[in-house]
Design a protein around this nucleic acid. Sequence first.
DNA 1: CCGAATCCTTTAGGATACTG
DNA 2: CAGTATCCTAAAGGATTCGG
Lengths: 119, 119
Amino acid sequence: MQKTPVQCQFAETLDTIVGKRKPQIIYLLLQGEPLRFNELRRLLPNITQRMLTLYLRELEEEEIVKRVVYPQIPPKVEYSITEYGKSLSQILEALHQWGAAHAERKQLKKENNEQTETD
Amino acid sequence: MQKTPVQCQFAETLDTIVGKRKPQIIYLLLQGEPLRFNELRRLLPNITQRMLTLYLRELEEEEIVKRVVYPQIPPKVEYSITEYGKSLSQILEALHQWGAAHAERKQLKKENNEQTETD
DNA sequence: CCGAATCCTTTAGGATACTG
DNA sequence: CAGTATCCTAAAGGATTCGG
């Protein structure tokens, strides 16, 4: 019985959340309100139907997101976060906060460079 | 003055830590001990010199990792985590733990499927 | 409204050989 | 020992078109 290597732990998690706009999709659904396909589309600037569909299928596959089809004309499909998906909340928040701090730091560094260049 | 969109916060962070073995490199250096190039190579199964170099350069660029060259023959270079790099610790831990839990869940699900297939 | 199917471009990652 | 330099493949992302 082989212990799962450290490497895989990261890979498992990152495979789940990595993708150009996957984190944002999860983040939007973590707000609690179910969202329809075209609502998500509007909230994700310039995303193609293909990519949105792909991301949602992947998230559905891993039971992060629940897909509910209302059999009516015109069709209506709602996506919402699952209980399991909510377990990603801390990670997303951590990523979000670090990103903000990082951007700030970059900005400061840039200003410092501009400062010292004129010395 | 435009507010940084939510999307970018995730992108900033993920750009920093995403890569097939980047998280593991950070994780290894977070242990505290500086590591030499070939030590890292040994600790990262099957990584090529090229990829290790690339990852390290990227991390150095973002000041996550500090590179120290000892001018001697044969050459000696040590890589260590920076104070700033340590701020990634929580994120890495969170990813690590979720990955472990996720793997466990997957395993349970698989067992359940095998169970119900024989009903 | 919510997709599937097809085709195309870009990038990440790797194999291999060479060097101060 | 610690890298560079080339070349190559697979996968991610995207543009566009079609359909129930």
